[in-house]
Design a protein around this nucleic acid. Structure first.
Lengths: 236, 236
DNA sequence: ACTGCGCGATTGTTGAACAATGGCTGGCGC
DNA sequence: GCGCCAGCCATTGTTCAACAATCGCGCAGT
């Protein structure tokens, strides 16, 4: 799960390279949720051994991007409505606790907050909408970091990675992404101004709105998927 | 220590079986913190391939029970004071949020709470002190379950497993274990009586006291360990 | 149309080979 | 005698191809 604390000389070999490519494909939406990843054929495609590929699968499994069932193989994680609700329960618990804990957090972490919001705003300015979602999530990761717990940071990282799976099937246009960054900025400023209770309220509304949006997207994708499945099976 | 896996109906794969056994040995204190696990010899002991054993090691690594240093192998995780603080930050965040959420939790989860406390009390009655610690932790797991999040349940489960590493080096006598169960009972009754704010206050005190105790134990074990290290190196 | 069986496809496991790194031992110079 | 350096050995990390176990699907029989 040691995801890119980079600078570390990870000579982790070919399986890491394969994992990087697959990760890219998954979060970019090239490999859609539910896609089965058959190791035999992918091993041939990449020109590596099955065992190496399985190692890459394992890495992605640690990051919550794929699921593995015994003797049924590996497939890209599919989020249903229950998963989204689960993720947002998690987000509320961790992020709201972090905001409440903000006054006790060291200055360094507050600065990281500012930095992440600035990065998101830069992504908006350059209209790199795919990056905007990622940058915004990084801000929320920095939010959780206020708690000062290595373990919760790692846990939240996986949670966020799964949420990105849902983003992959969403339209990434200006009117969908930009408003969130503005709200991130608002929360950041409230926190840096020491008004953590107001920040908490703002964050709660933020999460409620965001959950609604993601839920709609996931339900749409899910119904589209089941419709496609019915078509291939000839059910009407 | 030659223990073979086979014979059992291997319900979840062999690497998983090996991981189960090692996990048992670790949390039961058979393998003490810092014990190096050499893959060649353990693979022979278990009668499995070195590759399979490394798979098991990786599973335990994900669960935070062992650490892996590049080219230095795998060893049982040793918790230092920072780790304990980290774990208790996590416990406060999750458990207190769970208690606050209690009024919204379904009846079924409240009943589970009662069941777990009863189990802990039974362990006390039979003076099975090793089981008492485990049963008490299970109560706290049920507490977190009030949040209704599969992901947080899983996360808390590994957190608790790490905490048991510290318990492994603690004296497990009546006067150390029994009081916690009584306090668990108090919290449980408050929750079932709908007085979640009082339960929250009680839980906060509980966690503060528990953290102090575990911290002392870990510091004692740590200093004992470093003293032993100095002795073997000839440092006075 | 339904049920049971067998086969192909796919995954899980193995053992070996090779590379890379860390620690240790022995020798050297001071 | 003490400290430092170099080379060797043991252990770990990575990859591979072959073997075994299991699941799902199609086919035959009723």
């Amino acid at each position: 799960m040691s995801q890119t604390i980079d600078g570390s000389p990870t000579p982790a070999g070919r399986s890491a390279s394969v994992a990087d490519i697959l990760r890219e494909w998954i979060v970019e939406g090239v490999l859609l949720p539910g896609t089965p990843l058959r190791d035999s054929v992918m091993a041939a495609d990449f020109g590596v051994s099955r065992n190496t590929l399985r190692e890459a699968f394992r890495t992605l499994h640690d990051e919550g991007l794929v699921v593995q069932q015994l003797h049924k193989g590996t497939m890209v994680e599919t989020l249903d409505a229950a998963d989204v609700k689960d993720i947002f329960v998690t987000r509320r618990t961790l992020e709201l606790a972090a905001v409440e804990n903000c006054p006790l957090a060291p200055e360094r972490l507050l600065d990281a907050l500012e930095e992440k919001v600035a990065a998101a705003e830069h992504a908006v300015a350059t209209e790199d909408w795919k990056q905007v979602g990622t940058a915004s999530l990084r801000f929320h990761q920095a939010l959780v970091a206020l708690l000062g717990s290595r373990r919760m940071d790692a846990f939240f990282h996986v949670t966020i990675a799964q949420l990105r799976l849902a983003f992959a099937v969403m339209a990434d246009e200006a009117e969908f992404q930009a408003p969130w960054v503005a709200r991130d900025r608002g929360i950041c400023d409230l926190l840096r101004g020491g008004r953590s209770q107001e920040a908490k309220a703002a964050l709660r509304l933020y999460l409620d709105d965001s959950e609604r949006l993601v839920l709609d997207a996931v339900r749409a994708a899910s119904s589209a998927r089941s419709a496609a499945a019915s078509r291939t099976k000839g059910v009407r």
